[in-house]
Design a protein around this nucleic acid. Structure first.
Lengths: 199, 199, 199, 199
DNA sequence: GATGAATGAGATTTCATTCAT
DNA sequence: GATGAATGAAATCTCATTCAT
């Protein structure tokens, strides 16, 4: 990995920060935040622990930086969603785009989902929950019956589940993602109809 | 030590094991498994760390014992489910009972959900996933279209989400639980119909 | 040291806390607080670093405990002084007793004097300065001319200096201490006369 | 970098060495030598740590340079003193001039006084003690009775104390300094008389 | 005259665990 | 049924220092 024909470590200059982030995310997602020590990250990168501290002030800051870099798509999505009319089509589009965003930042979401207890203390936790709430508030109609609101949350959660739990369902991954998306779309559609009639 | 007449330290004899489990679960759920040290548990109980080791061989064993005690209802549910015919009614009843089981062991599930990364390494993780898979296989029809299978998983996941994420929806907790259950029931019902026609 | 005829470590039971304090004070006085690592203390005692943490929560706490144990004589002296009339004899007696107190806790005072910068941050610093101020306020007459007040402070400082700086004056230690005491007594006597006339 | 027109970064060229010394001394005096890291110094100067190493080979060398620059007045004083006759007037003049020298290099002396433990290892420590001994030997008469010798040391120490401990005496700083000087002068005068009669 | 990137050594602290009593 | 004393391993973090550019 990253070793060239002459055996030297190529690409080592100028991208260490990025490499730290990559390895950290990978290990955090794989083994959990607490189980992943800076020693381990450093060893994988073949640098010293102190090098990590040159690039990030604390372990927490590594994590924060991961969030900042990777939650931008969601941020953008919320922004977009806010400016659309609250129609069924918008909601469906949100679900579709959210599904994509999740797929694009799978390890981060996996990390978050599997380390909630940790993330919660990480002061970024709130920020992120806020964002999700933002999304939710776009597809949820606060006037709608409670059941329909639940259906919307369920839709989003189905997408999350799609990333992990569904993995051990049989079937082609692509098809599975489609199926998950379909279920989620159905849920918001039902929610919308339940709230506004079949329009 | 062992004072009795005034009742303060009464009830302390013979149930320490239980008390350890209670406090451990509480702290694990609240702060996460890794963040909770045996020192902390011992301090809350006003005993020494060594006392914990009289009752449990390792920290892991405390956790395992929690699972063993608390997953019996699920175990029983699966057993019951296996002996029923695979009708819609059975599936609905499974969902209903699962919902109750979750409510009855909330902290444990919360602990599991928020510490997946940890639980996974805990060798109990598999056991538990196996159980959930057992449940799933009862409400899922393996011949059914993929979308309907997803719908079933989504139903179960909706119940999970109901415990935590939905908490910050507005509304009376009782009503919320009902709404969650309704959505989950809808999902398995739709799944069933989608697989077998409207019968 | 502490090794008996059969060569085993005698007295190792029950007095580790004390031994930690002894060694710590010795090293702090000899090399300075910051230069003395817990590793070093532990090694000298032939225990592990973790053993130190069994007895003291932090490095700072070791220091605090040293102060608490060793400043009691001063405390007592102040208490005594407060209840005496503000006569010349009292002041002289204070100086005499203070001189003794200093001699009895030499390493601690040496540590304090040579590590003021550190001690200041140690939150015990204030406490100690308060005590010294307490002493000062007994021998100083706040109405007296400034010069006489200075003379009193100078008396106390002379005693301090006596412990360290004077060490490299030639002469028998006992005689030196006497000489130092005499100078200090002269100073408070002059101060008293300067303020109240030769009475 | 190197901006000039607006004056902000002006004067930054060519005097970095000086600025390092200033900030270092300030921080050393304020927080102690060990507690002050090169990172901190660099940050205050808005340069990198490496820049410090362009100007000084080690942290110790920064300190040494401070001493060299700031102890020259004392050096000169000793030289002057050596060539004077050992009369009372000379001794008084030495005390006066020493008092001034102290005032002119307050932070350095404060640093020295509060970090003796550190300074002692700094190999400059000896040098400095040597100098102070030099001074002492001028005002002390080695044939004089021990008490009178102590009085002389006490005089010098009173001047030191004047810088710090006396600070929290009430009164105008200028007057306090005068008072301190007066006490010190008294002490050498008494010492001289005690040794040679009232001449 | 300085920076960016890194290192090696070491500090304090915490943890799960053990065992004699 | 528990405690008191300790350990070994490891974690996070900091520091002075180096060196190619």
């Amino acid at each position: 990995m990253g070793v060239t024909m002459d055996g030297t470590k190529q690409q080592r200059r100028g991208n260490t920060r990025q490499r730290i982030q990559d390895v950290a995310l990978e290990l955090f997602a794989e083994q959990g935040y607490e189980k992943t020590s800076l020693r381990e990250i450093a060893e994988r990168l073949d640098v010293t622990k102190a090098a990590l501290y040159y690039h990030f002030k604390t372990k927490e800051e590594i994590t924060v930086s991961l969030f900042e870099d990777l939650t931008q798509p969601i941020e953008a999505l919320i922004e977009w969603g806010r400016q659309q009319p609250h129609t069924l089509e918008t909601k469906q589009e949100i679900v579709r785009r959210y599904s994509e965003a999740l797929a694009g930042a799978e390890p981060l979401f996996r990390f978050m989902q599997e380390n909630q207890a940790t993330v919660r203390e990480l002061r970024i936790g709130d920020t992120f929950k806020d964002r999700l709430r933002g999304l939710r508030d776009i597809i949820i109609d606060p006037e709608a019956p409670l059941v329909e609101q639940v259906r919307c949350v369920s839709a989003m959660f189905t997408l999350h589940a799609g990333m992990f739990v569904m993995q051990d369902l049989e079937g082609d991954p692509g098809k599975k993602r489609e199926a998950v998306l379909e279920v989620a779309l159905d849920l918001v559609t039902q929610a919308h109809r339940g709230a506004h009639g079949t329009e």
